[in-house]
Design a protein around this nucleic acid. Structure first.
Lengths: 208, 208, 208, 208
DNA sequence: CATGAATGAGTATTCATTCAT
DNA sequence: CATGAATGAATACTCATTCAT
């Protein structure tokens, strides 16, 4: 929740400030990130920063929100079509969307991801309030649905598999960013399919 | 690489210092960990610390090494028997060893793991130099061997699967520590088998 | 000396600004009072404030003046009748007027009083210039007159007693505001008379 | 409660620091006093200050304590002889002691006095805890004792007179410091006697 | 005349590291 | 070899004041 003074800024200046902040939080953890460095990089006075934001937590949360919003844009269409897709097809698309988001917004990905994985619970509460989304629970629901539709082996341990799948999502993004740096969307598709093939043949419903 | 002055210290004192440092790094990130708190907890003078170590990075790296060494102790016997075990059996044991290490040494696990996953590349280089162990490469070798022995599907993408398996190892440890807190070794076995069953049915060699 | 821009303001706005400033200075010392809070409470732009006043000192001095003027209104009629009253009767009325002013204008009283008693000489000079009213001198004159009229002991140390009487005036107001909170004018009269009886029996002219 | 590091300092350095702080607090209120200025005046590093004291409140409280202790030294002998002195003689000595303390330690007098009279209750509690001495109550006791001994008019309003006498004590000190600057102890005695003569003839027991 | 964004020096406090004893 | 005092750059944040619109 930046102040109105920030919203009212010329677009160019807003971008300069946000970029400086994103660069800073991508390079440093929340605690070690420096407001002074941000203002210097953005070319604004220190006092100005505090006329735009309520403090370090405020701008961090704002960037966190931007990240969430932008990520949702990569996924929105999927959630609309949820019912018409099989579990594996939906999952494939979610993985692909996640990877594309991470590839296109590597710093935002690093910031949000790093904070969720690394920050102390106390800090998380202070910065984000109770808004930490339980991605796990969403996957659990999908799995349960898939079981009901006879797409997935009913004998799996839903909680464990959900945890694994969530982790693999992050893992995959990291793999691409760190080692593959694939600009080509085709490569992403191929990788995801390889991975899904592994998963699918393992937990697929084999009834009858 | 602590200085000789540290190695020459009476064992009891060395332990006191290391414990204090492990406690500190388990509770705080590398950047926010405080040398002052460590020396106070260890009951030594601040100046002494700098006669034993080259700074914060030095003692951190030392603890990192200790963690690696101790983890190896959980795995050493496996590596001796490598040839007599199938890929999947070996792998099962490696997972189990990893989980047991994390359970028995939760602070060391948290420190090493947290640093590897969370620290900025710049910091990692500064602290660890190029010494980041390529655990991946070890797994890649195992996979290649498994393919040669006709235990594993030759069509898999070795690099990708190695990356995934490494991640899953960490993921599993976290799952246990965070959600299961199983004191009982039996539970660990059950979980690992569930997970391996997923992996195995996915990448196992199905030829002929 | 507010600027003309302030004098030209609609009465309602002027009042809003002065009230906000009085509230602020009543709650905070001169140095910790905040212009920002004043403008916010008054509902005016920060820039506007500096178009009305020359800074924090300027508006403070203005309020100080208002306080003096209003206090004078409680005393004006007394000064008209000065010649027809004995020293002690006049003094009694002055005390009563002072207490009533403090009771009716507690914030103004607190501001002016606190500043006179508490601010550093440097600050006083900076804010008030040489305008610190010599209330003492007025009392000295009264005493000298009283001596001439054979109402007061000629052996007293006029300067010292004038200083004491001035202090006691402030003391009395404080005593009422802090400890008595008398709404009832009767109580004020009783207190003042007790106090005057002490003074009177001490310095009254006893000759022949 | 300065830290041991301060107590262990060479006397000369301790004095330099305390003097710098006393100068600062004599010139500025608690809130506007600047630690930076103190360290600069004392010629020490900012970090050193925080190795000696727990913060601004800590050194202020220390100075406050010094002031109280030193003041007590001016009065200690009086309190021992309390029973052998009449109310007026004891009172005379207390006034004299207070004035001498203020004259010899004008800055300490200004700091302690200004803080007690001026600081907000919240700040007082934060800085001093509940240790604010009720000087009034001590005077009330003396008055009551004086009445019992038939030295003082039993008809006086004890609470009011105690309040007045306390105020006059401070008033007198200020009068001397500001206007008289008497180096000569004789002058103090003369002034106090003039003042006491006023008080005495007013409230003295006149029974029989 | 009203506005409010921009400024930058100011605040208290922390902490890894050095170095003289 | 042990000590712990000294350092000073670093931190987040505040606020009276200016000035362009």
């Amino acid at each position: 929740m930046p102040k109105d003074t920030f919203s009212n800024l010329p677009e160019e200046k807003k971008q300069r400030i946000l970029e400086a902040a994103i660069d800073e939080f991508a390079e440093y953890s929340f605690e070690t990130a420096s407001i002074t460095r941000i203002t210097e990089a953005a070319g604004i006075a220190k006092g100005s920063f505090y006329q735009y934001f309520d403090g370090k937590g405020d701008i961090f949360k704002h960037i966190f929100d931007i990240s969430g919003i932008r990520k949702m844009e990569y996924m929105r269409h999927l959630l609309r079509d949820m019912d018409s897709l099989t579990f594996f097809e939906l999952f494939r698309q979610l993985y692909i969307a996640g990877i594309k988001f991470a590839r296109d917004n590597p710093k935002l990905h690093a910031i949000a991801d790093g904070f969720v994985k690394n920050a102390s619970p106390a800090l998380k509460n202070e910065v984000l309030g109770k808004a930490i989304p339980k991605s796990n629970e969403f996957i659990e629901d999908l799995l349960t649905r898939g079981i009901g539709r006879k797409e997935i082996d009913p004998d799996i341990d839903v909680k464990l598999i959900a945890f694994i799948l969530t982790s693999l999502s992050i893992t995959l993004s990291e793999y691409f960013i760190r080692d593959v740096k694939a600009e080509d969307d085709m490569e992403i598709l191929v990788m995801v399919d390889k991975m899904l093939s592994m998963i699918e043949n393992g937990i697929k419903y084999k009834g009858e």
